[in-house]
Amino acid sequence: MPDSSALMMADHPDLVERVETYLREMYALGDGRSPLRVLRTLVSSPRLADFRVRDFNTDGYAKVGDSFLNEHTMLSDWSQKSYGVELSRWRLIYPNLEIVSDYELRDERITRIQVWPFDPKLLSFEAMKISVTLSYTDFELYRQSRLVGALNDLMQMYNLEVDPDAR
């Protein structure tokens, strides 16, 4: 059985190789696709916190979450785009931002910010796919079933089942 005692961050230089090997070995032990919980025993979620910000300049930031899925699957995005901001950068820009909690659903001036421990722009496409998948909580997957299909499509090559009820 693969060693799952060492949880790694999603920016690990050998992330994709290790995930492929780990899931292949886990799949060989089971009778179907590996559930998302198996991947979560190897790699931690990069998402530390969420904020909604008004009039955020998105230049130089990577799309994450639903906005990433919108570009790479059939999932359609919300009016508020999602961007990843590295924690150290967030600490610098946070005092100058207008954080909001109430806003109109279709207000495109609002940006959804996910704070990550590293800069998501530095990830390869495959590492970003893994990171975005892990950034969703089971609660979000239950609440927004449309995400499960999009993430399953995104993670198809890894033979991963994203459904939070998968055993």
Rank of each mutant, 00 (worst) to 15 (best):
S5R: 11
M74N: 12
L75Q: 11
L36G: 02
M74R: 13
Y83A: 03
T41C: 03
M26T: 09
R89D: 14
R106K: 13
E20C: 01
K63G: 01
K81A: 13
Q144W: 12
T58I: 11
F68S: 05
Y61N: 01
D138A: 09
P13R: 09
M74G: 08
P46C: 10
V85R: 06
D55H: 11
L42S: 01
A10C: 14
A49C: 02
I113L: 12
L48N: 03
E140Q: 15
L39N: 02
M128L: 12
L36C: 02
A49G: 01
L87M: 09
S124W: 05
S124H: 08
T111E: 09
P120N: 07
R146K: 15
L134R: 07
R54W: 01
L29C: 04
Q80P: 02
V85E: 04
L105P: 00
L15V: 03
R33S: 06
V100F: 12
E86G: 06
R89Y: 07
E104W: 02
L123A: 12
R89C: 10
A127T: 07
S5I: 02
A28T: 02
P95A: 04
R33W: 04
D119F: 13
P120M: 05
V100N: 11
L141W: 09
Y22R: 00
A28P: 00
D3K: 05
V16Q: 00
E98Y: 09
S5V: 04
R143I: 00
